[in-house]
Design a protein around this nucleic acid. Structure first.
Length: 249
DNA sequence: ACCTCGTCCTGGTTGC
DNA sequence: TGCAACCAGGACGAGG
């Protein structure tokens, strides 16, 4: 594998040229995902951790805003694109990967550790809006703004409710709703709002499944009530005022 | 500890 | 049409 750096500011404060030097000539042994991190395990014992943030992506087709290019040994050109340059690359020793990620991420929502008991414990004593807590990667790794809103709609829970105010049945519904929303997103290969493409260059289809995200002014798919927009922790937040009332249940 | 806000960037959309 | 303001899939640090 060769590594070509197109934007030296790709990672700060880490020196990307140093990253490139470390990876040059190495061989990818395995590719994993943990929460929102991609992990490329190298045969040398190093690992490249990539976080795409808002607009990062990998693709096989040449495109604009390329920040780095990986040249695979079979001739494949794999370009890393990131319009807003929020994405991060980090090289660690393989043994450092788990401790690093464990500090950032809680359980995988589709894995066995994401139980109702876990979620009850994480929400208890938290007065912040339940949506803000749901976006904490240590609560559920990988849940972002879209899936938080979609899950809360499915669970019929208002995003502004204090996390600690949810009763056990609501938490149970929320756990199931997070899992269902993520599964749908995976089936539909993600949401293409503007930038996102699969590595093959095709658009995701999840945006066609949105129940609330970005749908202010449109009718709720369940009850017809006009979807409302508010802000939670600085993030755009959509919900159905009737299906997700800000009272009990 | 918890919680909110500003910041890191670029580009597309909206409103005057 | 021009241009400024605002908004966007995320995470982190500062400060209350």
């Amino acid at each position: 594998m060769s590594v070509e750096i197109l934007d030296p500011r790709l990672t700060r404060p880490i020196d990307l040229f140093e990253v490139a030097e470390e990876l040059e000539g190495d061989t990818i042994a395995a590719v994993e995902r943990r929460g929102k991190y991609l992990v490329l395990r190298m045969e040398s014992g190093l690992a490249l951790l990539v976080h795409l943030r808002m607009t990062g992506s990998f693709g096989f087709e040449p495109t604009s805003h390329e920040r780095a290019v990986l040249g695979l040994d079979d001739g494949t050109r794999l370009a890393y694109r990131d319009v807003r340059r929020f994405g991060t690359w980090l090289v660690l020793e393989n043994t450092e990967v788990e401790p690093y990620l464990a500090g950032k991420n809680g359980p995988e929502p589709l894995g066995p550790r994401f139980t109702t008991d876990w979620l009850v414990a994480r929400l208890s004593g938290r007065r912040a809006p339940v949506k803000a807590v749901l976006l904490d990667q240590r609560v559920a790794a990988g849940v972002g703004n879209i899936y938080a809103d979609e899950a809360l709609w499915r669970a019929r829970v208002n995003p502004l409710r204090p996390a600690e105010s949810l009763d056990p049945d609501e938490v149970r519904r929320l756990r199931r709703a997070v899992r269902a929303a993520l599964r749908t997103g995976i089936e539909r290969q993600g949401s293409t709002l503007s930038d996102y493409r699969t590595p093959e260059g095709s658009r995701g289809g999840m945006q066609e499944e949105f129940k609330v995200y970005g749908r202010d002014g449109l009718p709720c798919r369940h009850c017809g009530t006009t979807i409302a927009k508010t802000r939670v922790g600085g993030r755009g937040t959509w919900y159905c005022p009737r299906c997700q009332p800000h009272g009990a249940g």
